[in-house]
Structures are given as C-alpha cells and as structure tokens.
C-alpha cells in the first residue's frame, strides 16, 4: 500500500496514494495507522484525493482509525471524489467525519 505522510505544525497529513480503499487494503491501512498512532500522533488529516473508490471495508477502517485517535485527538478528511463522497452520504458517515474540500480547509478545521 502506498501512503505518504507529512507533518504540518504538529498535524500529521496522511495521503493515500491508491485508487481504491477497499477490502484488499483495509487491514494493511489499519496496521499502518496503528504504527503512526504509536508515535503519539493525535491530530490527523487524511488526504483521500487520489481515491476513486471506497467500499464498506474502507469505511470500516476509517471508523477504526477514528476510534483509535480517541477523544483527545481530531481527524479530518479532505479530497473526496464524487463516488467516495456518495458512499459517505449513503452510510451517513458524512455526519461522523469532518469532511473538507482542500488541504487548507482541513488544516483550518482541525485547529477549530
């Protein structure tokens, strides 16, 4: 699985460089995220702007990440393409996650 990370003023930005976040990748994604959490990162931005498709396993692993961050951290997601955004709306996950259109917007949102 291809991911890229960068730190912006204490916020960890994780870019998923994959076209699909699905059952094939979900377990690996969670494992990678667990390792990143071990470094005490609690303010996280997921950049999903390269993802064309997400299934229920992908949604499930994002929920697992949210739980792992816990109440003292924050998770913001940006860059949802139309089919991915539709999946968030279908499963009502658009009410669970803070969703933004750009990285700048996400950085502002995580500081609110």
């Amino acid at each position: 699985m291809q991911i890229k990370t960068k730190n912006i003023n204490g916020v960890l930005v994780i870019t998923l460089e994959e076209k699909r976040l699905d059952s094939r990748l979900a377990v690996t994604f969670k494992d990678n995220f667990n390792q990143l959490m071990a470094a005490e990162n609690r303010f996280i931005i997921f950049d999903l702007s390269q993802v064309d498709f997400i299934d229920s396993s992908g949604i499930g692993c994002l929920v697992a990440c949210l739980k792992l961050i816990g109440p003292k951290g924050r998770l913001v997601i940006w860059g949802l393409k139309s089919p991915v955004e539709a999946m968030f709306k279908l499963t009502r996950m658009d009410r669970v996650f803070k969703l933004c259109s750009t990285e700048e917007e996400a950085l502002l949102a995580i500081g609110d």
Binding site: G60, A64, L66, K67, T91, M93, R95, V96
Partner: peptide
C-alpha cells in the same frame, strides 16, 4: 446508528 457515539460506531455489517 448514533453518529456522535464514536465508541459504538459500526465498523462492519454494511455490505
């Protein structure tokens, strides 16, 4: 489900 109840959000069973 309750979208504000993070601890009890479903991680599977949507398929």
């Amino acid at each position: 489900y309750d979208p504000l109840d993070i601890d009890n959000l479903p991680e599977s069973g949507f398929g």
